[in-house]
């Protein structure tokens, strides 16, 4: 019974940590959306900024990955 409660805590914690992935999704969407808005305003400058776009997405995504990592650790490693 005690183990079950601990397992329940793990699962709940992992599920809560997974919310972080959704937050990262918002961040990535923000970056991409703003890039698109800027690119439509000045399409000629957009081509040279794709690298910056991917770097920005990568940084936003990194924090979501930490949430994912926490979820994984809670599920399997703790």
């Amino acid at each position: 019974m005690e183990g079950d409660i601990a397992a329940m805590g793990q699962f709940i914690g992992a599920g809560l940590a997974a919310i972080g992935s959704g937050a990262a999704a918002i961040g990535v969407g923000h970056v991409a959306g703003n890039f698109l808005a800027g690119a439509l305003r000045n399409p000629s400058a957009a081509g040279g900024q794709t690298a910056t776009l991917f770097i920005g997405i990568a940084f936003a995504e990194a924090l979501g990955i930490f949430a994912f990592l926490v979820a994984l650790l809670l599920m399997f490693a703790v």
Binding site: A58, E61, A62, I65, F66, F68, L69
Partner: peptide, 12 residues
């Protein structure tokens, strides 16, 4: 944190 995110991104 760089190597962590760098590796976990691909793996994840």
């Amino acid at each position: 944190a760089r190597p962590v995110s760098h590796s976990v991104r691909l793996f994840g």
